[in-house]
Design a protein around this nucleic acid. Sequence first.
DNA 1: AATAAAATTTAGGCAAATCTAAAAATAAAT
DNA 2: ATTTATTTTTAGATTTGCCTAAATTTTATT
Lengths: 219, 219
Amino acid sequence: MNFSIAEENYIKAIWHLQQADNNVTTNELAAELQTKPASVTDMLKRLKEKKLLNYQPYYGVKLNADGKKVALSIIRKHRLWEFFLVEKLKFNWDEVHAIAEELEHVSSNELIKRLDDFLGNPRFDPHGDPIPDGSGKMETLNQISLHELKENISATVTGVGDQTSSLLELLNKKNISIGTKLEIKQRNSFDASVEIKLRNQPLITLSEQLAKKIFVKTV
Amino acid sequence: MNFSIAEENYIKAIWHLQQADNNVTTNELAAELQTKPASVTDMLKRLKEKKLLNYQPYYGVKLNADGKKVALSIIRKHRLWEFFLVEKLKFNWDEVHAIAEELEHVSSNELIKRLDDFLGNPRFDPHGDPIPDGSGKMETLNQISLHELKENISATVTGVGDQTSSLLELLNKKNISIGTKLEIKQRNSFDASVEIKLRNQPLITLSEQLAKKIFVKTV
DNA sequence: AATAAAATTTAGGCAAATCTAAAAATAAAT
DNA sequence: ATTTATTTTTAGATTTGCCTAAATTTTATT
């Protein structure tokens, strides 16, 4: 089966929202896709026709097995292209999302197979998100948010909460990227901000909002 | 200015037909794009609105300076991606055209700039066609068709007439690719076929149709 | 339980890009 | 120079994907 770019974007958006929420609403989707609820309803009817999802009018939507498979193949493409852009073309991690949004719709499966091999079958994209394999399987690394990390426990940054440029630029400024080792030294109860230490560096402060968007794994 | 995929495909097709013909007709375009003449007329009106071409109803169409610039930027993308696919992902030259047709519509200019550098600023694509630079300039190598080559003059293959897989597969079978050195040994006046010799190989026969699609440069 | 608020769907339209069938213009042939 | 054939355009529909405004359904509140 072959899908339009618009259809692929809906499938991908539903998949992402479904991770957090399980049941996805029309308004959530409209916000995510920068479109109107009425347009979403239209598309959901079409995707239901194509048997990619369970859609109950007024009660939201959920991808079925076929829909998830399509979603994961798009996500695989997206993340492989992001890896290519950073690793080979030397883009910064905060510049690649929009370009990968276009590249992910190029249809050739042979292309993706060869790109994967060319890149050395990477398992994580530049933001730390796992890259699904050809059959849709994907590692789940049990990371926690920095906000939940206990004090004085050494951890490594493994991912970020989203790819908005404002978040990624702030992380660049604070010298935090995937693989960075850090430790929480103090918490400020007033605003839930945390004081963290990077190797041999003075303490820096991260706001609660920021700490919640940084995912880490303890060593 | 930004263009839809359909618009880009029309612009590119007009450019190619214009190379052979200068003035491009509605029917030619319809055949090239596998669509109907009525659809072509519609699109030509739209592209005229956007001031990319000179369109005289009933008398055909020609890209203007702006239209040519757009065409060359698409062709640049197409040929750079073809080079990437063959050089880095190890596709055969007869497998890359369709994939590059999709990749060429990815819009980021920064992407193309970096891809160009990553590839080492190649000047020719895998079929021997010159790659326009960022400003639209392109080498014209004064090649002739093999059909016009004189007997017993050594020449190098520099290009092919089109990218149809039937042509490229036949060339593969006969071991002819860009860079191949050859020489015409005999001509058969009956069917205008030619007997050619590749280095240290027995004579092989090429039909008139085939010889006309192979371009060479004498050394 | 009735009413107000919020979320969602329906109805009706629009633009892009395509199509078929019919009309008009140009080119070719007698 | 007419007639015929070919090419091209116009007219009217269709599909996709989106919109606004109005109607409907669900959820929240009194």
